[in-house]
């Protein structure tokens, strides 16, 4: 076991192998965070739509969730990267294939974002639906409109309730970012494999990658726990009123 391999000069591109690791970490973080932005916003909207009474709002959201949930992430990646440019109008497809900057990166971000959005939607939906109906009645009885009830009553409590499962989805995005290596994004896992191929230091390369993922998990978990503490409602232990 020889961890000094990381300060040895890399096979190509100058620098040392540690630079490859850092580059991998950078791409993992960028893909994950941008994908999360998409997942959280799109997923929240979808989740809220799934709780409404109007079928014209609810059904498309349900269709979206079912499609994106039931196809493996790898297959979705390939469809975004290989299939999409072929089925959009000619002009758009050509741009995607030739002029689009960093196509692997952006496809990975969009794919991961929209995939995770379907899971976030389910969390948001179940958070809102776990609030007793009486809360909605109380809001309506005051004269609040339905959008106002969502804004002032359902969403503030709903999001607090789902902080733990949302944390889990956030962590999952970091792990799922590794699937981007199949379309050529040189994120952390890809770099670890590359290093092992060039230096034959397989154990060391994968150990470093594993440790980094562990650190990411630890950091996110600690951060979310302190966020949960900050947002905690005093005295709230379960359903209100009892």
């Amino acid at each position: 076991m020889d961890f000094s391999v990381f300060i040895q000069p890399a096979f190509s591109g100058g620098g040392i192998y540690l630079d490859w690791v850092l580059s991998g970490i950078k791409w993992t973080l960028w893909v994950s965070i941008l994908a999360w932005v998409i997942a959280f916003t799109v997923g929240s909207v979808l989740g809220i739509l799934r709780t409404t009474q109007l079928a014209v709002l609810r059904v498309p959201a349900t269709v979206y969730v079912e499609i994106f949930r039931n196809v493996p992430l790898l297959v979705q990646m390939f469809i975004w990267y290989f299939v999409l440019p072929e089925i959009v109008p000619r002009g758009v497809g050509d741009w995607m294939k030739t002029k689009m900057p960093m196509p692997e990166f952006w496809n990975a971000v969009l794919c991961l974002g929209f995939y995770t959005a379907s899971r976030v939607a389910e969390q948001v939906r179940s958070g809102i639906q776990s609030i007793p109906a009486g809360q909605t009645y109380a809001g309506l009885a005051m004269g609040l409109t339905r959008p106002q009830v969502y804004r002032h009553v359902l969403l503030p409590m709903g999001y607090r309730i789902i902080i733990p499962p949302l944390t889990s989805e956030f962590l999952t995005i970091f792990k799922n970012s590794s699937v981007a290596l199949t379309i050529g994004v040189l994120e952390l896992t890809a770099q670890a494999r590359q290093i092992s191929e060039y230096t034959f230091r397989t154990f060391e390369a994968f150990t470093v990658a594993t440790v980094v993922y562990l650190l990411i998990t630890l950091t996110v978990t600690v951060a979310m726990r302190s966020l949960e503490k900050k947002l905690r409602v005093p005295g709230y232990i379960g359903s209100a009123g009892k």
Binding site: P132, G134, Q135, Y137, A138, G139, L140, A141, M142, G143, L144, T145, H152, V153, P156, M157, R160, V233, G235, Y236, S239, A240, G241, K242
Partner: peptide, 20 residues
């Protein structure tokens, strides 16, 4: 309806105060 409801006060069995 919202306007109508604003003129009628309602008190619920489970109080239904907004916990947050």
């Amino acid at each position: 309806l919202p306007k109508l409801r604003s003129k009628i006060g309602m008190v619920f069995q489970n109080f239904e105060l907004f916990p947050h």
